[in-house]
Simulated scan of single mutants.
Amino acid sequence: MTGTTTTRAARPDGTERPFPDGAGLPFPDEELWEAVLGGDQARATALAAAALDAGLPPETLLLDVIGALQARIGRAWAADRISVVQEHAATAVNERVVAAVAAHPASAAAGQRRRGRITVACVDGEWHAFPARLLAEVLALRGWQVDYLGAQCPTPHLIAHLHRTAPDALALSASLATRLPAAHTALTAAQAAGVPVMVGGAAFGPDGRHARLLGADAWARDAREAAELLARGIPEPAGPHLPVDDLPHLADQEYTLVSRSSRELVGTVMTALEREFAPVRAYTELQREHTLDDLGHILDHLAVALYTGDADLFTAFTDWTREVLLARSVPDTFLVFALTALRHQLRDLPRSVAVLTAAAARPAGAPA
C-alpha cells in the first residue's frame, strides 16, 4: 500500500514483524507495553528515544509500534483485562511518547521538506483524538505545515479557522459512528468554503462506505494512505451541495423522531428492565448509571443507522456490545430484552423495527 520495501524486525519472543521503509530493527514491544500500562512515562519515552537513536524511522515508530500499542490498549479494555482508568492512564503515557518522538532530532530532520498546509481535526463530539494526532505527526514528518486542532472541534470554529488559514485540505477524524451526522455537517461546510475534505477513522467504515455516502472528497484507511493521498493532491470541491441530497431516506423523519425521543425511550426501557429482571432492581446507583449509559449508546447507534440507512452499522455495534457485556458477566438476555422493548416502543417506524429485529436475532458470540 505504501509502495515501500518491507523488511522484518524480531519481536521479543523470537517471531518477526514486518516494518516498512527498510527499518529492519528490533523493538522491545512487551517492554514498552509494560511501561505504558504501568504508567511509567520516563521508561516509555526512553525506549522510544533509544529506538530513534538506533535508526528506526519516526514514522515507523509512530504507526507500527505506538499506534499498534494504542489499539492493543483498546482491545484490553473491551475484554475487561484493564479498567477504564487504566485505559485512560495508558493513553496519556502513549500521548507523551508521541510528543517525545515529535521532539526528537530524527523527526526534525525528516520534516524539513515543505509541501503545503493541512488542517487536522476531530469531528464535533469526538474525543478519541489519538488517530488524528498520529496523522498530524506523520504529515509533519512528510513536510506539511499542520494545524492540529485536536478533539471535539466545534464546526463553527473549525470553519472559521479554514477561512482564516486557507489550507490545502481538511483531514477530519471520527472514531465513533454516532459522530457521522456531525461529520456530515462539518465536511459540507468545509466544502462550501472551498476546502477539500479527506475523512478517516472507524466511524466511516472499514471500506469507507460512510465517507462516500456523506460526500467526502477522499477517504483514507490509515495515516500512511492519508499522507499519500494528500501528496498526490485532492481536487477542490466542484461546489457546495445540500446534505439532504446525499440522504433522501431521511424524508421519512424516523431519524428525527428517534433522536428527539431518545431520553424518554431510555427511561422506558430501563423501567421495563427493572420490571422484568430482579438483578436489575438490585443494582447500585453506579450500576444503574452504567446501564442508562449503555441504553443511551444503543439509541445513539440506532439513530445513526437511520441517518445513514445502514442497518449493518447497528448490528456491528450490538455485536461489539455483546462482547463487552459478556466479558463483564452481563447476560446476553439483557441486551436482547432491551432491543425487543425498543422495537415495541418504535413499532410504528418500519425502518427502526427492521434494524432492531435484525440485531435482536443475532446469536450470542456473533463476530463483531
Rank of each mutant, 00 (worst) to 15 (best):
G267I: 03
L326P: 00
Y307I: 06
G143S: 11
E95A: 15
E34A: 05
W144I: 01
A366E: 05
R347Q: 02
P167K: 10
V195G: 08
W77R: 04
A136N: 06
P156M: 04
A368D: 13
A129T: 10
P350R: 01
A358L: 12
G150H: 03
R96W: 01
L295V: 03
D246A: 14
G74I: 12
L214H: 04
G3Q: 07
R260A: 15
I66T: 02
A90G: 09
I82K: 13
P20F: 06
V280W: 15
P279S: 00
H241K: 00
R281C: 02
L356F: 11
L180R: 05
D147T: 05
P154F: 00
F334M: 15
T268F: 02
D300M: 05
W127C: 09
A68P: 00
L139D: 03
G239P: 15
T5G: 02
L25K: 09
I118W: 10
A132D: 06
F317G: 03
E323R: 03
E264C: 01
G55C: 08
Y283C: 01
H249P: 07
T321I: 02
G67A: 15
G116A: 13
L247T: 10
R275I: 05
R221G: 15
S175E: 12
T315V: 14
D332N: 12
A76Q: 14
R322L: 06
L335E: 14
A177E: 12
A100T: 00
L265P: 06
S261D: 11
L299I: 08
T45I: 06
L135H: 06
V330Y: 11
V195P: 12
L158Y: 09
L170V: 11
P363E: 14
A44T: 01
G39C: 10
L61T: 12
A10C: 09
A10I: 11
V304N: 00
D29P: 01
A174G: 14
L250V: 06
L356M: 03
E274F: 01
D252T: 04
F314S: 09
A90I: 04
E95H: 06
R72S: 11
F204G: 07
D222H: 15
A23H: 08
A140P: 03
R288C: 04
F19N: 04
L339W: 08
A361M: 09
A366P: 00
T315D: 09
Q145G: 07
T268R: 13
V244A: 15
L61P: 02
E276I: 01
L265M: 08
